[in-house]
């Protein structure tokens, strides 16, 4: 991770047109990829939970949704920082931005179902159902926003990177993948302990 930061900040050459702000790109894209991965895994976990009814699949999905929301929020936070100097404004109602925001709200709603429901099997089932619906709705969001959007696609379509930039990009992908796994494992461990603690306290009373 540290190496990725150093690479993004120092090693990668400064982009000619955009200057130093371009360096956000490395983290921005990496976390967007992590978020997409997380949402896909929420879907997998939800389907598996509905199939097998094992608590571990419920935890699997829930933890990934949390981390996915975290990374999406970072994407939406780092985006405007880059957009301000490049587009002149923090926010444009531009296809990818709007899609990301709506997807984020869907998964925040998913987390609310998990957290505000009474703990138990029913909430797990409901969450899994939402997890499936949420994932199916993402392509709809993406396509409809494209139809609706007045702004054309403003995201750079094809980025030409020098070899040093390429290396930095891949290093950042790798570092974020590690961070992603690390966060998941930490959170999953915690959830497991919590479940065990609950089982213990239930068995003593």
């Amino acid at each position: 991770m540290l190496a990725a930061i150093i690479a993004a900040m120092v090693y990668a050459p400064t982009e000619q047109q955009m200057g130093d702000v371009q360096r956000i790109f490395y983290f921005h894209v990496s976390s967007a990829l992590c978020a997409a991965m997380a949402y896909f895994l929420v879907f997998v976990g939800s389907v598996e939970y509905l199939r097998t009814r094992q608590d571990r699949w419920d935890r699997f999905a829930g933890v990934r949704a949390e981390v996915g929301v975290l990374f999406s929020a970072f994407v939406l936070f780092s985006g405007p920082l880059w957009a301000r100097p490049i587009w002149g404004v923090f926010w444009r109602w531009e296809p990818r931005l709007a899609t990301m925001l709506i997807t984020l709200t869907i998964y925040v709603a998913y987390l609310m179902v998990r957290n505000y429901g009474d703990p138990g099997e029913r909430t797990q089932r409901f969450a899994a159902v939402v997890g499936v619906v949420a994932f199916v709705s993402v392509p709809f969001v993406q396509y409809s926003i494209k139809l609706w959007s007045a702004d054309q696609q403003l995201h750079p379509q094809k980025v030409e990177l020098g070899p040093m930039m390429e290396q930095t990009k891949w290093l950042c992908y790798f570092a974020f993948a590690c961070l992603f796994t690390l966060l998941l494992r930490l959170r999953l461990n915690q959830e497991r302990q919590a479940a065990r603690l609950q089982a213990l306290s239930r068995s003593t009373t």
Partner: peptide
């Protein structure tokens, strides 16, 4: 909270 975000694509159309 659940219905609105999922419904946005339909609403746009």
């Amino acid at each position: 909270l659940l219905v609105l975000p999922v419904l946005i694509p339909a609403l746009i159309s």
